[in-house]
Design a protein around this nucleic acid. Structure first.
Length: 155
DNA sequence: GCCAACGTTGGC
DNA sequence: GCCAACGTTGGC
């Protein structure tokens, strides 16, 4: 079982949206970065959990956690010429891009902001802090526990 | 809205 | 295969 952090802009895919449909899964699609793609395709497994991070807003923060309910499979949004995530190089035989399905698990009673994360020396090695724009990144067990505790979420 | 970081593209 | 130009991300 591994831990991850996935970023979304709440304008297009917010935790609230997931929360409203606790019994449904959602495709987490549109990732167009090779390093992130590799994690989605090769590393993320069913049963893994991910921190749900809202970016590109006034106070970017980890706002909740989601379960990975389906491991990497081809991101069909790359094949839709009218879609926002269309990639002319992708084809059914060579999908290039991958996505996973996630399901709402919990909301953090206290969102953990990027500022909070930067202040905590235990979290200094997170790619998030190292100014990476990576939209899917691994999280260590220790980092996970620290963020759970900062977010006042008890298992 | 600005701009720094950084990944990708394409000419050579 | 180098590297300049360009596009995107995302914090501020």
């Amino acid at each position: 079982m591994n831990y991850w952090l996935i970023k979304t802009e709440p304008g297009c895919f917010s935790l609230d949206l997931l929360k409203k449909r606790p019994d449904m899964t959602e495709h987490w699609d549109g990732v167009r970065n090779f390093q992130a793609r590799n994690f989605l395709r090769d590393s993320i497994k069913v049963g893994d959990m991910a921190l749900f991070y809202h970016s590109n807003i006034a106070e970017p923060a980890v706002v909740g956690i989601v379960d990975i309910v389906r491991a990497g499979y081809p991101d069909f949004t790359a094949l839709d010429p009218n879609g926002e995530h269309f990639d002319p190089k992708a084809s059914p035989a060579n999908p290039i891009w991958y996505m996973v399905d996630v399901r709402f698990r919990a909301e953090l009673p206290k969102p953990v902001s990027l500022a909070d994360i930067k202040e905590n020396p235990l979290l200094a090695d997170m790619p998030l802090v190292r100014r990476s724009r990576l939209s899917v990144q691994p999280v260590s067990a220790v980092e996970w526990q620290v963020i759970m505790s900062m977010g006042r979420l008890t298992a």
